[in-house]
Structure formats: structure tokens, C-alpha cells
Design a binder for these strands. Sequence first.
DNA 1: GCGTCGATGTATCGAGCCGATACATCCAGA
DNA 2: TCTGGATGTATCGGCTCGATACATCGACGC
Lengths: 195, 195
Amino acid sequence: MAGGQRRVLELAVLGSLHETPLHGYELRKRLNTLLGMFRAFSYGSLYPCLRSLLEQGLIAEEQPAQATIVGGRSKIVYKLTAEGKERLQELLTQAGPSAWEDESFGVHFAFFRHTEAEVRLRILEGRRSRLEERLDSVRTALARTRERLDSYTLELQRHGLESVEREVRWLNELIATERRASERGPATDTTSSDE
Amino acid sequence: MAGGQRRVLELAVLGSLHETPLHGYELRKRLNTLLGMFRAFSYGSLYPCLRSLLEQGLIAEEQPAQATIVGGRSKIVYKLTAEGKERLQELLTQAGPSAWEDESFGVHFAFFRHTEAEVRLRILEGRRSRLEERLDSVRTALARTRERLDSYTLELQRHGLESVEREVRWLNELIATERRASERGPATDTTSSDE
DNA sequence: GCGTCGATGTATCGAGCCGATACATCCAGA
DNA sequence: TCTGGATGTATCGGCTCGATACATCGACGC
């Protein structure tokens, strides 16, 4: 995916480990539960990502001295380092245009609890305009098409457009809620220091 | 994607060229219009696919003798060969489990006009059970999660589940329509020889 | 005429994702 | 005791995508 996508996985891993140390298998399950229908990470990307994060010093292996280990089974539990926490804050704050793409948005959203209100709003609005752009381009492309499309293709289009429109409406509601909340208590920081 | 996904692009290309010869740029535009919100193919996959299809003899370059070419601009127009048509029929008929994955379903659906009624039903039902499986696994994973999730994560889950449930309902309607049509006129072949 | 901008057009590359797979342990039930 | 399924770490090949390069064309202003 040309570089930009690894960031999403990094965010997902760092965000998960921020709450509690985990090992690979558990991390994957947790991530896939957290993201539900939106995304499913595979080992083929997860393990390389963990190695990379380890090399960057953003995560570290936890000492197996803890009684946490059930049998004598080999298990590598990772925890966030101080640098990792900084990096996480950075990723959460500097959410750019990539944050409103399909693959990234869900991950960012899943960690909104740790995100500043201002950034939350920026991501939601960015996502919305991204979807609206797409709606426009598909609609104009459709209008420009001379030949008549068969009923199946039309039905596919209709359903596709409808579900995106629905997501836009969902975003509108979320944005309205965010706005209302920030008007009510502008200084309220949902995050501050959780856990 | 482990091998199986190139098939989808092949199907998309062969299916498009079945209707009219096209060159790369136009093919991509057409495909992205056809699939609307579902998929967008990039040149990075389209051109290698065209080359592969050419090598397999499933498509051929059309003679530039035709007046179709506007200027003297280099343009490579591809058309379906007889073998290509056979292959297309094969792909349309032998739609297996891969046809009901996210990336493939839309493409198969977009060419339902050329697909036998029996296969259409199989694909729709396969897609439905695929989605229901996913709903189940997410719901049980969610139920098994001890710790309470924050409101953002819950909202993400809710929205994700809802949109998949909506797609299931959509499929139910389509399946019912297909069933009704095949009861009414079981021998009716929508395809036979189009164009 | 001339520059420039956007659409049209073909093509490739590196980064990186994913499904499949291999290998191993643990536990519950037949 | 054996078998199957969950747990657990790890890698590989095939493939996709965004970015990019390069080039031509028509339209526009000046």
C-alpha cells in the first residue's frame, strides 16, 4: 500500500498496548474484536509490525517472570515503552488526510477515547468530505455514461450509493454530538490520563 | 491475496471487453464506474493483468487501422478472443466460495446479466451466509469480552453490525426476487446471446 | 504564436498486505 | 489414548496499490 498504511497498524498496536500488555495472538484477537466488521489484521502484517516496533524501541518484551504465563508455554508479551506512548500521542494528534480513508478511519475512531476533541472533529469531518467526494465522482460518472446499464448494475449502484449516504448521515450525527459536547463543556478533556 | 484475487480482475476485464473493445485507460474508467462505490482498480494491477491475458491469448490487440483513433495518439485497444469468451463463461459459471468475499462479490454481481440464474442464486446465498458467519463471530467475540468498551468503540460496533445486517436484508430481497422469477419462468435464460 | 493546465494515455516500482502454511503445545472429550 | 480445536509464533509467495514518469492533445489566455 505504498508506505502510508503501516501507520495504521502501528497506531492500532500501540493503542491496544496502551491499555494492557499483550502477546501477538491475543493482540490480534483483541484488535479484530475492537474493529469488528471494519478490519481484520493478519499475522502476516502483525508480526512484522511488532518486530519493527520492537526495533524502534516503541514496545518492549515484558519479563516472563510474572505468573501470568499459564504453562511453560512460550509467549512473548509486549508492553508500551515511554517512547511508544509519545509516538502514540503523536499518531493520535497528527491525524492527517490518510485518517479518513476506508482502511484507517475505523482504527482512528476506535481510539477516539484517547483523542483530543478537536482532532476527533477534524477526522469526522475529513471522513465525511472524503465520502462526499466519492459520491460526487460516482454520480457524475454515472450521469455521463451514455449507454444504459442493466438492472443488476443499477441495483449495485443504488445499494452502494445508499450505504455511503447512510454513512454520511451517521457522521453528521456524530459531528453534531461532538459539537454539542464541546459547546457544553469546551475545556472538558475526555482523555487526560485514562487507566 | 494468495493467488485467488487475480481471478476477480480477470473476470472484470473479460466481462467488460465482452461488451465492447477498450483500451487501458478507458477500461479502468469504465470498471470504476461500473463498480461504483465497491471497488477501484489501479493501473498497477490493471496493466499487468492485461499483459497476462494477452500472453494467455484471451484478449488481443485490435488493429489500429480503424478510424476509431482520433489523433495519431498511441492507444492499444484490446478485444476478447474466442478463448477469452470461453474463459469468461467458465469464470461466470464456476463461481466458487471466493465469489462471496468482499472484493469479489461486487464484480460477480456487476456481471449477473451474463450469469445463469442458478449460479446467481448460489452467489447471493453464499454471500449471505458469509456475512452471517461474520456477524456471528463478531457478536460472540463481543459477548465474550469481559471488560467494558468505551462509547466510541461501541458506536463503531453498532454501526458496523447495522450496515452488515442491512446488506443481509438486501440480499434477502434479491434472493426472493430471483426465486420468484425462476418459479415464474424456470426455463427463461436471461443471457443466451446478448449484444 | 506561445505557454500552461488538465485530461488522456501507457507503464513500472517499491512498499507492504494477506491467505496459506508450518510447526508446536495444551486441554477437553470420546 | 487419541483426536480435534484453541492457543501460539513465524514466514513466504503472490498480489495490490499509490506514486511516479513520460508523453500527447485540446482549450484557454495573452
